[in-house]
Nucleic acid binder design. Structure first.
Lengths: 160, 160
DNA sequence: ATTATAGGTGGCGATTCGAAACTCAACCTT
DNA sequence: AAGGTTGAGTTTCGAATCGCCACCTATAAT
């Protein structure tokens, strides 16, 4: 059973791995709340209206995946602060892209609050797929390829 | 990233709307398969290993949200072709961003197949958040703002 | 010492998921 | 025309998950 049928059969995509970390029901909304500056259990709970056990489960899972960090605050040891890690911040383009899509294709109205450039307070641009040199690529400009077919790739096809 | 704590109460974000369309368990994987050129029920089923009832439910839901179109093929009227709509294609930046995140932070290895520029067959760039003039923005360059603070410069002064 | 707050757990009914069997119309073979 | 196969679902039913609510524990405020 070692035959590669079409060009797409032997897919090893990182999307399932990403979804294992972020694909559950409230994860993205918790992340958005964290990006919006929320840090505490009760803040998330009242902002999102999520059930407390589910919230506890999701926070633990996000911490387990290294997306949030759990800090006990010294000045009030009841308080737990959930803070985005670098890995969590790295989800910003995904979140912005999804939100922009919802804005354009679902709600049809500008969301609030909006993300603006701190320098000039103008709204950020639409998130796009771009070529290595920065050109914006539309769907007709894109092709799926196997790693060994890619030009500037040097190695990584060791075995088989 | 700056926050406006008080004013975040009346948040009207499009993320929940986007997640209503795409937030369920298999939706993104079905979308990826559709981007990879799969079109038929049995193709999705055998590629993803998803239960048939769930697949039927998700396809109907994606069609209901206008992300896929359902076409009965004239040359074999048993066959149903699911095709991405423009709205479905518009999820490409989101999907690429999520996949790139998974590649960088979860699997650690380049995914396969990869998206390349059809012109030079080089891999696409990392999806980034950019200012309206194209500058790449990092988290310290971003601020949340209410619409009335950005639409007009005069309103920015007037607000509270 | 009592009360309030922060961050959870546990119970339990309702919903959803998943694997496998079943349906059913449309094609294919003879 | 008969019988078989294929494509796209639907049904069934047990398992897992969700969500509301009450409760618990440690800490802080009065």
């Amino acid at each position: 059973m070692g035959q590669l049928r079409e060009n797409l059969k032997a897919v090893e995509c990182s999307l399932p791995a990403a979804l294992e970390a972020m694909g559950e029901r409230w994860s993205f909304l918790i992340l958005r709340a964290a990006f919006n500056g929320l840090h505490h259990f009760e803040e998330f709970q009242s902002e999102l209206g999520i059930a407390r056990n589910i919230l506890a489960n999701r926070l633990a899972r996000l911490v387990g995946h290294g997306i949030l960090e759990r800090h006990s605050l010294p000045e009030d040891r009841r308080k737990i602060e959930y803070r985005l890690t670098e890995k969590g911040y790295a989800l910003l383009p995904t979140m912005v892209a999804l939100r922009q899509w919802g804005e354009r294709w679902e709600t049809g109205v500008p969301a609030s609050p909006i993300l603006v450039d701190a320098r000039d307070r103008k709204p950020i641009a639409q998130v796009k797929v771009r070529a290595h040199d920065g050109r914006v690529l539309e769907k007709q400009d894109l092709v799926w390829a196997l790693p060994e077919d890619v030009l500037d790739d040097k190695a990584a096809e060791a075995a088989e």
